[in-house]
C-alpha cells in the first residue's frame, strides 16, 4: 500500500490511542460487560443469554460512540486547527489523506473492539468456566459489529469532509438509528402506496442496513449464522464503506481550506 497512506493512518491511530476519552469509553463498555454478570445471576437459566446480549450491545453502542466521536473530527478538526496545511503542502494527495484517516480510525476501532470483546469473553468464562462450541458465533457477531463500525466511521468521515463536527455527529448518529430500523423501513415501503412507497423504498435502500448486521439476539440464542449472510454482509459493508469514503474524497478534492 501507498507509504504515505500508512503514515497518515498510523498517526491517526496514535492520536486516538493518546486520547483519554477513548479509555473512558472502553472502561464503560468493560464495566457494562461486568454488570452483565450481575444481571445474569438474577436471571435464572438465561444467564448466558443476558451476558451475550448485554455484552455485545455494550460493545456495539460504545464502539459506535467512539466511531462517531473520533470520526467527526477527522477532517474538520484538521481544517479548523490548520494542522492540515503542513500535511497537504507536502507530496501528499488529498485522497491519500482521507484514506489514511479512514484506515487509522478503522484500525483504532478494531483494536478497541478486541479489548471490549475480551470483556465479553471474560464474563462468559466467569459464568460457564469454559467455552462452548456455540460461543464461536459470538465472534461472527463481533465481526458484524466491526463491519457496522466501518460503515459508521466512513459516514462520519463523509460528513466531516463538508460540515461542522456537531452537524456531522447529528447526521451520523441519525443514520445509525435509522439504519438500525432499515428492515422495518423496508417493510413499511412494501405496504405504502404511490409516491410515499417510492420515497420509503429509496430511503430504505439508501440508509445503511444495520439491522442485517445485528445478529446479537441470534447468537445469544445459540442460533448458527448462515455462511451466505456472512458473505453478503461483508460485501455490503465493503461496498457501502467504499462509496462513503469515495464521496468524502470527491468532496474534499474540491474543497477550499479556509
Amino acid at each position: 500500500m501507498n507509504a504515505r497512506v500508512i503514515h497518515i493512518a498510523s498517526n491517526t491511530f496514535r492520536e486516538a490511542v493518546r486520547d483519554r476519552v477513548l479509555y473512558n469509553l472502553i472502561a464503560f463498555a468493560l464495566l457494562l460487560s461486568g454488570a452483565a454478570i450481575l444481571v445474569g445471576q438474577i436471571s435464572i437459566e438465561i444467564e448466558k443469554l443476558v451476558v451475550i446480549n448485554l455484552g455485545l450491545t455494550a460493545v456495539s453502542l460504545f464502539g459506535v460512540v467512539i466511531a462517531i466521536f473520533i470520526g467527526i473530527g477527522l477532517v474538520s478538526k484538521e481544517i479548523d486547527r490548520r494542522t492540515l496545511y503542513t500535511v497537504l503542502s507536502r507530496p501528499v494527495r488529498r485522497w491519500e489523506f482521507i484514506v489514511g484517516k479512514f484506515l487509522g480510525l478503522a484500525g483504532t476501532l478494531v483494536v478497541n473492539t478486541f479489548f471490549m470483546a475480551m470483556g465479553v469473553f471474560g464474563a462468559l468464562l466467569y459464568l460457564a468456566h469454559h467455552f462452548h462450541k456455540a460461543d464461536a458465533w459470538v465472534l461472527v457477531a463481533l465481526y458484524f459489529i466491526i463491519l457496522q463500525f466501518l460503515i459508521i466511521c466512513a459516514l462520519a468521515l463523509l460528513f466531516s469532509s463538508f460540515s461542522s463536527p456537531l452537524l456531522s455527529a447529528v447526521f451520523a448518529f441519525a443514520l445509525f438509528v435509522i439504519g438500525s430500523f432499515a428492515e422495518d423501513l423496508r417493510g413499511f415501503a412494501t405496504m405504502a402506496q404511490g409516491g410515499s412507497r417510492w420515497l420509503a423504498t429509496g430511503a430504505a435502500y439508501l440508509v445503511p442496513n444495520f439491522s442485517a448486521l445485528n445478529v446479537i439476539s441470534s447468537v445469544a440464542h445459540e442460533q448458527p449464522i448462515p455462511g451466505h449472510l456472512i458473505l453478503y454482509n461483508t460485501l455490503y459493508a465493503a461496498l457501502y464503506t467504499a462509496m462513503a469514503v469515495c464521496g468524502a474524497v470527491l468532496i474534499f478534492e474540491h474543497r477550499n481550506l479556509k
Binding site: N11, R18, S89
Partner: peptide, 17 residues
C-alpha cells in the same frame, strides 16, 4: 511539493506528539 518547504501563519501542530 517534495522540493517545497512551507511555514503557515501562526502554525498549530498535533499537540499530542
Amino acid at each position: 511539493k517534495a522540493q517545497i518547504g512551507f511555514l503557515p501563519e501562526q502554525p498549530y501542530f498535533y499537540d499530542y506528539l
